[in-house]
């Protein structure tokens, strides 16, 4: 498979990333450019034997300013997995839909729109609620969505709980007057 991918590497401007799964011979990671993702996936599905879309999801690398889209495809004849990674600018999260290749990708895309705010123009029911009915906050799977803050603002914590830090408490009890406490 590796050689086959190397042959098309210029055609689809893909790069093999070996360091991500050096131990595995059944899992390859490959990086693809945004405009070449759909042609490459079409080639994988139709000509290279990667007929099974295992899952399609995003990872937020907020520090570097991109979403990593991961299309995991599987070849049943060789039992090989290929993870196609796509770096998507967080500021402009729009990418081509693949629901025409695998209908169930529409569900993944619907979820990703809801959870990350990634747009897949043309994907069926993309803007319909999937899991979060009536949600109007930041897409929650983005790293900048603070779950703790949200839960503190939304729910009422049970009162009467107070925990003590072991070191602080021992200081209070044993050496409140000593130099370090001044």
């Amino acid at each position: 498979m590796r050689t086959q991918l190397q042959q098309v590497s210029t055609r689809f401007s893909i790069t093999l990333i070996d360091e991500l799964a050096p131990e595995r011979d059944d899992l390859l990671f490959v990086q693809v450019e945004k405009d070449q993702a759909v042609p490459f996936l079409t080639w994988l599905q139709e000509l290279a034997g990667y007929t099974h879309l295992v899952f399609f999801t995003a990872v937020d690398f907020i520090e570097e300013g991109y979403f990593q889209l991961t299309y995991m495809v599987h070849d049943y004849s060789t039992h090989q997995d290929l993870a196609v990674l796509l770096k998507l600018d967080r500021e402009d999260p729009v990418v081509e839909s693949i629901h025409h290749l695998w209908p169930h990708a529409a569900t993944y895309q619907q979820e990703m729109y809801e959870m990350y705010g990634i747009e897949f123009p043309g994907s069926p029911r993309l803007h319909d609620d999937f899991v979060l009915e009536g949600w109007d906050d930041l897409p929650p799977m983005r790293r900048d969505f603070d779950t703790r803050q949200y839960s503190e603002d939304t729910y009422f914590p049970r009162g009467g709980r107070k925990s003590r830090d072991t070191a602080e408490y021992m200081k209070e009890q044993l050496y409140p007057g000593e130099a370090e406490t001044w």
């Binding site: 709980r161 107070k162 925990s163 003590r164 830090d165 072991t166 408490y169 021992m170 009890q173 044993l174």
Partner: peptide
């Protein structure tokens, strides 16, 4: 679920 609370003498 766990709080550390004073029980015995330090």
């Amino acid at each position: 679920a766990i709080d550390m609370v004073p029980v015995s003498k330090t």
